[in-house]
């Protein structure tokens, strides 16, 4: 071969002989046809199953069916099919079960599903094999062009030049080598592309994981806040019943207060973020509560009950009473 300064040049065909690649294509093609046959077989089963399901569905529509009973190989005689809702179903491996048409239908449906699953897996297998065939075909084609197509291998004692060498044809003086280097370049390009693809996949995977974790976190906070809302709502209802005839505006004012009380119990569960927002909220509410308490100094009983209890009518109610008294 080429006695290049930096290395040797070997034709691709010597690494992957054309006949060998073609043989491989042939072999994989054979397996594909085999699998295709199996797939056809399965499809046959599926259509048979479908026909059987239809038949089984129709059978119990009548008490009896007029049919031609096969007698021997060539003879038929008229007969009647009775007990149309009793079927002996083969479960497989010699086991039979007595079933009604409806139950049989269920069994057949399940069987159809199993068959479809097999069909799908077989399809996936065929797709795999076809990818293999195309790969082998490519290799064979490349090897067939091997009269000119050359694969370069560089001496190991120039490790520093192993990477950049692929693109540098000037180092090789042989006329064929320009083509060879082109091929090598191509290969290197594919390698780089592959690396890029893998890197991209890694990034995507990480992103996916990250979003998944975030989702989980969000779920937790959402759960907490919704629980908190529900509690506040129920409390509002209770207070509603406790003080009938209240104005809606007071109820609305009542809600934040109750939720503030609730918040203190929810605190240990919430995440940091949640706590911060909640505490802000509670501060605001406290302000409003203080404002309210200013409005009715004449109700010490209610005051104490609001500070202790949760469901009993509290400050806003008193305020309402106060408003009522005013009006």
């Amino acid at each position: 071969m080429v006695g290049g300064v930096k290395g040797t040049v070997t034709p691709l065909a010597s690494v992957f002989p054309v006949e060998e690649a073609q043989k491989a294509v042939q072999r994989v093609g054979d397996t594909i046809t085999q699998r295709q046959k199996e797939l056809d077989h399965l499809r046959q089963f599926i259509s048979d199953n479908r026909a059987l399901i239809n038949l089984v569905q129709k059978l119990p529509d009548e008490i009896s069916h007029e049919i031609m009973v096969p007698f021997g190989r060539a003879a038929f005689f008229p007969g009647r099919l009775i007990h149309t809702n009793e079927l002996m179903v083969l479960l497989g491996d010699g086991y039979y079960a007595e079933r009604t048409a409806k139950q049989t239908n269920e069994i057949l449906q399940r069987r159809g599903k199993a068959l479809e699953g097999q069909c799908d897996s077989l399809k996936a297998m065929i797709a795999d094999l076809q990818a293999e065939v195309s790969f082998f075909n490519n290799t064979a084609a490349e090897a067939a062009e091997g009269l000119v197509e050359i694969r370069e291998e560089y001496a190991e004692d120039h490790p520093a030049s192993t990477i950049p060498q692929s693109g540098r044809s000037p180092e090789i003086k042989h006329p064929e080598s320009s083509y060879a280097s082109g091929v090598k370049e191509n290969e290197a390009g594919e390698d780089a592309e592959y690396a890029r693809m893998m890197a991209r996949l890694d990034v995507l995977e990480k992103e996916e994981e990250a979003t998944f974790e975030r989702d989980e976190e969000e779920d937790v906070t959402r759960f907490v806040s919704s629980a908190h809302l529900v509690k506040a709502n129920t409390l509002v209802k209770e207070t509603d019943s406790g003080s009938a005839g209240k104005k809606s505006s007071t109820t609305e004012k009542h809600l934040p207060l109750q939720s503030e009380q609730e918040v203190s119990t929810v605190h240990p569960l919430t995440t940091d973020e949640k706590i911060s927002t909640v505490s802000k909220q509670s501060q605001v509410i406290i302000g409003s509560v203080v404002e309210h308490s200013h409005g009715f100094p004449s109700d010490p009983n209610r005051e104490t009950s609001s500070s202790v209890g949760t469901s009993k009518p509290s400050k806003p109610v008193s305020r309402f009473k106060m408003q009522r008294g005013n009006s």
Partner: peptide
């Protein structure tokens, strides 16, 4: 096949009649 049979058997009622084909007889 046997796994399919087992699944179906599990789904049967307890009073269901089950037969085994042995040679020509059930």
């Amino acid at each position: 096949e046997n796994e399919l049979v087992l699944k179906e058997l599990d789904l049967l009622n307890e009073d269901a009649n089950v037969y085994k084909l042995i040679g020509p007889v059930l």
